[in-house]
């Protein structure tokens, strides 16, 4: 029986790897997300890793550790890093940790026809 409450999907374009996380990020789900993103990152070795948070419905400080860890993984292979669409709740956590000053945060509105 699986208790996974989070999923990751990947998209690569122009050597930029986007990892779109959906669901809830806590200490329980963070390990699986970390392993999936790192496996894809070290296999593809893109120029840039973007972690898309648009569909994350909950995150605690385990998510901060996850994000900071992926930034370090990207640095290890000389890859750029950015966080996309973190939302107000996640931004509040990032502000608290001062993480918003360490990496780029991008905002992108959902395209027409795409569910928010």
């Amino acid at each position: 029986m699986s208790f996974d409450s989070c999923a990751v999907s990947f998209d690569t374009k122009d050597n930029v790897l986007t990892a779109a996380v959906s669901g809830e990020i806590d200490h329980h789900s963070a390990k699986a997300i970390r392993e999936k993103i790192d496996a894809e990152l070290f296999y593809l070795r893109p120029d840039k890793l973007i972690v898309d948070m648009s569909r994350v419905t909950f995150m605690d400080s385990s998510g901060l550790g996850l994000i900071m860890g992926r930034m370090k993984s990207a640095e290890e292979i000389g890859c750029g890093f950015a966080l996309k669409n973190p939302g107000e709740r996640i931004k509040r956590l990032l502000d608290l940790a001062g993480a918003d000053r360490i990496f780029d945060i991008t905002e992108e509105k959902a395209s027409k026809g795409e569910k928010k």
């Binding site: 400080s61 385990s62 996850l66 900071m68 608290l96 940790a97």
Partner: peptide
């Protein structure tokens, strides 16, 4: 804030601060 006894586990050390 940022203190953790488990840096290898990718803990942010922000639990009590949150």
């Amino acid at each position: 804030p940022l203190f953790t006894t488990d840096p290898e586990g990718e803990r942010s050390g922000m639990g009590f601060a949150v």
